[in-house]
Design a protein around this nucleic acid. Sequence first.
DNA 1: CGGCACAATGCTCACATTGAGCATAAGTGA
DNA 2: TCACTTATGCTCAATGTGAGCATTGTGCCG
Lengths: 332, 332
Amino acid sequence: MTTAQDTQRTEESALSNPSAVGLVAVIVAATDGEPRALTVEVDGQASGRSRGLPAGPLVPEHPTLERGLRAWVERQTHQRLGYVEQLYTFGDRDRQGDESQGLHSLSVAYLALVREVRPAGLAEASWRNWYGYLPWEDWREGRPAALTDIEARLLAWAAETTDPKQRRRREDRLALTFGLCGGAWNEERVLERYELLFEAGLIPEAQGQSGAASTTESGATGAPMAFDHRRVLATAIGRLRGKIKYRPVVFELMPPTFTLFQLQRTVEALSGTNLHKQNFRRLVAQQGLVEETDGVTSGATGRPARLVRFRREVLLERPAPGFRLRATRKPA
Amino acid sequence: MTTAQDTQRTEESALSNPSAVGLVAVIVAATDGEPRALTVEVDGQASGRSRGLPAGPLVPEHPTLERGLRAWVERQTHQRLGYVEQLYTFGDRDRQGDESQGLHSLSVAYLALVREVRPAGLAEASWRNWYGYLPWEDWREGRPAALTDIEARLLAWAAETTDPKQRRRREDRLALTFGLCGGAWNEERVLERYELLFEAGLIPEAQGQSGAASTTESGATGAPMAFDHRRVLATAIGRLRGKIKYRPVVFELMPPTFTLFQLQRTVEALSGTNLHKQNFRRLVAQQGLVEETDGVTSGATGRPARLVRFRREVLLERPAPGFRLRATRKPA
DNA sequence: CGGCACAATGCTCACATTGAGCATAAGTGA
DNA sequence: TCACTTATGCTCAATGTGAGCATTGTGCCG
């Protein structure tokens, strides 16, 4: 293992090997039953303008990475970030587009949840439905149409190898991530699916950054994003889908009072699946996640619903409250 | 939000704000029913020699952070890393001891699992039981003795505030993390517990790095580590304890064949709790995690046990196989 | 050699959780 | 008033889960 000298050298003078470090944020909101991420306009290197996630330099004046990010985003968006979580630190491979000139380049990605969608301040920034970038992830209307095309191309990709062993491995991965060949769809494997598509060459960002290489139309494989930002988005979605099952983070996306159905729609939007209504309510009720207010909805179609609010106390009570969501079998 | 110019500046010339980036690894093995982490000797800044985690500079020649880490560790330890996962990227606050001279300093921490414990190559490196650093985390022999002292001091810390609101908050946190005041112990909250102790001043590393400040004896609060490495270790343990519940990662720590009881001992070592033997076997069986070999143990006391091996196929079959471990109520 | 201690294994049982569906209530719009 | 839509209450069967009893092999000790 590392010698004492090695270690010392590292800890005390790592500055001999400085790197460019940036922050990227996936800022998520949910309105009208759609999951949205904040995107900005970015000058692509050669491919003209495209959309990307808000990103910025590491601001040195802050004590903690997270607090730095929080301040940075809140200053720019004038929105309070309800929940912030570090996602992942991406290294060079993914940061295509700036060939490191002897320098490493890293970006530390964060996930943030915001409650309200303001007009998004700056003109270049806007909220986009995240399934526009990853259409195969939305199973709320049943099996996404995008998958028909994708599956065919993935199977072709698996078949194009002559080495039977590698071919077997590819097929296994297809089963594991996309549920082909008898596998089951697991809504949390968002990143694995994205990376598989990337390897299979179905992601335009994969083919160098020259705009000319956009042979892949964005229909089935979704709209592209600048740099590796779609990978970051996929990471965020996967993480969030896992998190809502054991932590009450969805409430960070809800207004102060809401109906159980709105809550359900939000959870469904994030997870990309449909839930059994009655069971969802039972779950929320027995976990004690919400308390009733005396308000009810009005004006909408159907019987008026009681308005509820999040019970902040549960953060202290239950060891790990959240939704154990099992998708219903029936489509929609 | 970020303007297009901002974004561009960041992505293309973040080098205007370079940072010192290092890697830290928590390399875990389990032998003789004890969880161990690889530690090295480190020259503390003023506190003389102490132990720390293996750390090194970011090696630029590798395509991916993870692959870089893998190569780095494997070269140094001559051990194959079975499983590698990025843990967290720690920023300045935690990296005490090198006051950044205008530079940011980050360390990207990784968790790695190894199967066998070799003599640890270099003399300065050795495998240490991780509960030596976090004694309050080991509940296998019942409630850890260290907790009596710790709890008293934590309660005193909560009581020393005059502001009733802050005091309430502190008590809530004690309930949440340490299960005081009627809360339950959650074995995954390792990091939260460490950070609470840190804030309460029970962690010697907290009081600047001068050796003189070591007023806190290491009995109840565990042995100190260099830099913020105990925080990194706590992060790793918490993550691993969560992971084994839904992913079959424990097997990365096991020899090629083993008995179910050895497996149980390993899981217990990691989670720091005891499990109900029969139920554990039932779980492993019905999840199809292992398959029998024709070997049996011999020589040991008690009826010989069948040797089993991990069924690699489960990685493909079940959506998320792992142990849902619920601790038994009875002590040991 | 019989008895013991100690694990390994098999099996039962009460109870909680969960997936699904039926039925009824209470609004809106035609 | 009817048709439609959503809210909400309740039941039921299947499965999962925590605990504990019973039995079976082995090495060890008089």
